[in-house]
Design a protein around this nucleic acid. Structure first.
Lengths: 91, 91
DNA sequence: ACTCACAATAGCATTTATGTTATCATAAAA
DNA sequence: TTTTATGATAACATAAATGCTATTGTGAGT
C-alpha cells in the first residue's frame, strides 16, 4: 500500500516543477478537510448544510470529494453556516 | 456622494435577505484587497506577478478589479509568490 | 427483509472563470 | 514629443464550476 507521501516523492522525482503544484493541492485539501471535519462535528448532513448555504447537496458533495475546486464565493457560502472564516496572513 | 455604507443600508432596507450577501462581498473584497496591497508593497506589476504565478496578466487584472471571483486554486497561485497564505479559523 | 438517511454520482443546461492575444488610455520618464 | 510601463479591457475559445433533478450504493437501524 503506497502512501500519499510515496506518490508525492515519485511525482517530484519525475517532474521537478511539481513541488508547488503539490503544495497547492495540499493547501486545498487542508481547507476542504477542515470543512468536512467541521460539518461532521456539528452533526450536519450535506443536505442540511447545503440548504443553509442555498446551494444543492450535489455541489457540496463534489467539493468534499475533490471532484471540483470551489470558487471563492462558493467556499465562503459554505463556511458561513459552519462558523468558519477565511483569513489571509503572511507566511 | 453616497458611501458604500449608504448603499449597504439601502440594499438591506429593500431586501432583508441581503445581509449575508453583503458580508460575502465584503469578505471577498477584503481578501482581494490584501492581495493588491501586498503586490503594491512588493513593488510588483500585474505582469510580473502574473508571470510568477504562471497565469496571464489579464486574469490578475480581472480579479483585482472585481470583474471575476477567483477559484480557490487560482487564488492560491496568486498568493504563493506574494508570501501570503490562506487560513481557516473559527469565528 | 425493509426502511431510512446519507454521500456519491450521473446527465444535462447554464453560467462563469480561465487562457490567449491584443489593444486602449493613462501617466511617467526620456 | 515620443517612448515606456502599467492597469484595464476586448473578443474569442476552452475548461470548469454550478444548478437542477434524479438515482445509486452503502450502512445503520427497525
Amino acid at each position: 500500500m503506497k502512501t500519499w507521501n510515496d506518490y508525492k516523492e515519485y511525482v517530484k522525482s519525475v517532474d521537478s516543477e511539481a513541488q508547488k503544484d503539490i503544495e497547492e493541492i495540499e493547501n486545498i485539501a487542508s481547507i476542504v478537510g477542515t470543512l468536512i471535519e467541521k460539518r461532521n462535528s456539528l452533526g450536519l448532513s450535506q443536505r442540511e448544510l447545503a440548504s443553509m448555504c442555498g446551494i444543492p447537496q450535489s455541489s457540496v458533495a463534489k467539493i468534499e470529494s475533490f471532484k471540483t475546486i470551489p470558487n471563492l464565493d462558493t467556499l465562503l457560502k459554505i463556511m458561513k453556516p459552519l462558523g468558519l472564516k477565511l483569513t489571509v496572513s503572511t507566511v
